[in-house]
Computed example of a mutant assay.
Amino acid sequence: MEAPDITIIGVGRLGNSLAKALSAAGIPIKSLYNRTANKAQKLAADLNINVSGSFPSDDHELGDLIFITVADGAIEGVAHRLADITEDFSAKTIVHCSGNESAIILADLKSKGGSIASFHPLQTFTGYSEPSDFEEIYFSLQGNKSAFPQLKEVAKRLGAETLEVTEDQKSHLHVAAVLASNYLNTLLDAAVETASASGLAPKKAKKALMPLVKTTLQNIEDQSFEDALSGPIKRGDLQTVEHHLDLLKDKPELLALYQILGQRTVELAKKSQQIDHDTARKMIKMLK
């Protein structure tokens, strides 16, 4: 299957990264738009794209596949405005890339014959993202199945995988992504704060912890969660856990975080059968 020519509306972090990755993969981009037109025009010039501006003025400027990569709160408004351009979207596939919103938010375009879908990348993007950041990631697909073949081809060209989900599955997957990505960031920030509580420089603490984090992630990828688990709770080391709790007694937020994650870790350790029922019970009592 040939990749369709593409329009991108919104060139923030995701839209910018997507445009560069599509271009690098040899997928034709017909037009780029952004609320601040000069941002779209600059990117268009960099990627040799002929059509750009603040918003398409007619359907002749639109590709066969239209990505709406604006903030979640702006998607419906953009879709409504886009629907005013023409009465016939039957030859178009329109997708948004929000993890939180369903494809149905594009209903205005569906009512005019368009195929609609959500195409959410399970990846984090920054101003420094590269086309390679799309390789081996997953896009969740939700919406009209007629849109899926084109989107699967785009994902394939980017070196990515796809996962078809229901609306409910999509919502839960997005919560999971926040836990796995955003909250991992927060957890590591808390770990550095803990290490720095006795005067160790935060930068040194972060540098010392990162190899551990990377190895842990690799172990999780290669093994089950319970087999990849290590540390005092898996060993049933009540004395060490008690000492940790005492060290954090003057840091209530860090203490609460340690306790709730510790309780979850006890349940994981029980699955690995590394601690007995009595030790697990004592550990849970200590962590409450």
Rank of each mutant, 00 (worst) to 15 (best):
A3R: 00
P4S: 03
G10T: 00
G12W: 01
R13L: 11
G15P: 04
G15M: 02
K20Y: 06
P28Q: 09
I29K: 12
S31W: 00
T36C: 08
T36R: 11
K39A: 04
Q41A: 12
L43Y: 04
D46V: 03
N48W: 01
V51Q: 11
G53T: 04
G53F: 03
S54G: 11
F55R: 03
P56E: 01
P56V: 02
H60S: 15
I68C: 07
I68R: 02
T69P: 08
V70P: 08
G73V: 06
A74W: 01
I75T: 01
G77A: 12
L82Q: 07
A83Y: 11
E87K: 13
D88P: 12
F89K: 08
S90P: 03
A91N: 13
V95F: 06
V95Q: 03
V95Y: 02
H96Q: 06
H96G: 06
C97G: 10
I104W: 11
A107V: 05
D108F: 14
S111F: 07
G113T: 09
G113L: 08
P121S: 13
P121E: 06
T126S: 15
T126F: 09
G127Y: 07
G127Q: 15
Y128E: 14
Y128A: 14
S129L: 07
E130A: 12
P131M: 01
P131Y: 01
F134W: 05
S140Y: 11
Q142L: 07
S146N: 13
P149A: 06
V154I: 15
V154D: 04
R157E: 09
A160S: 15
T162P: 08
T162R: 06
L163F: 07
L163T: 03
T166D: 10
D168P: 00
D168R: 07
D168M: 04
S171W: 00
S171P: 00
H172P: 00
L173K: 08
A176Q: 04
A176N: 04
A177F: 01
A177H: 01
A177D: 01
L184W: 04
L188E: 03
A190W: 05
A191W: 02
V192C: 09
A195K: 01
A195V: 05
A197W: 00
G199T: 00
K204D: 13
K204S: 12
K204P: 02
A205Y: 02
K207P: 07
L209A: 09
M210C: 05
P211A: 03
K214D: 01
T216H: 02
Q218G: 09
E221H: 11
D222E: 13
S224W: 05
L229Y: 10
S230P: 04
R235T: 02
D237R: 09
D237C: 11
L238A: 05
Q239G: 10
T240R: 09
V241S: 01
E242D: 08
H243F: 02
D246K: 09
D250S: 14
L254D: 05
A256L: 06
L257F: 14
L257Q: 13
I260P: 02
I260F: 06
Q263S: 14
Q263M: 15
T265M: 08
K270E: 12
Q274L: 10
Q274K: 15
Q274D: 10
D276I: 12
D276P: 14
D278Q: 15
